[in-house]
């Protein structure tokens, strides 16, 4: 790979990462956020792969490639976990519309008893 190619891949990885980051900041829907995280991850993996391919000699550096493999597995796990959690949140908050009304009468319920009425942080 020529030096220019190398730079192009590295710059592209930066762009992909930032696109993911931007979407993470502006998207409200959980599913889109999870996808944004995956795009960010792809940016990082592209960066590492590009890094490994630039070594002198015929064989690319195996260490960043192994790192990418590790990273991909982690990211698959994270996506699976995030999707399950997102689905559970959706289920519970749907059900919650009913219990929301109950909360004022039966406020001693263990779970809703500590529902966050914090003054900040809920904005995002």
């Amino acid at each position: 790979m020529t030096e220019i190619d190398h730079r192009v891949y590295l710059a592209a990885s930066a762009i992909v990462f930032v696109i993911g980051f931007y979407s993470l900041l502006v998207q409200a829907h959980v599913l889109r956020r999870i996808m944004a995280l995956n795009v960010m991850g792809s940016g990082v993996f592209l960066f590492l792969i590009a890094l490994g391919s630039q070594t002198p000699g015929p064989v690319p550096d195996p260490v960043p490639r192994a790192m990418v493999l590790t990273g991909i597995v982690v990211s698959v796990c994270a996506t699976g976990l995030a999707l399950a959690l997102a689905d559970r949140v959706q289920d519970t908050t749907d059900r919650c519309e009913i219990s929301e009304a109950n909360r004022h009468t039966a406020s001693s319920d263990r779970k809703s008893g500590i529902e966050a009425e914090h003054s900040e942080g809920s904005a995002s």
């Binding site: 959690l85 519970t92 908050t93 779970k111 529902e115 966050a116």
Partner: peptide, 15 residues
Amino acid sequence: AGGPAALSAALRYLT
């Protein structure tokens, strides 16, 4: 913990 507050907090924590 279950419950809507804990689950939403967990989801945000995860992202």
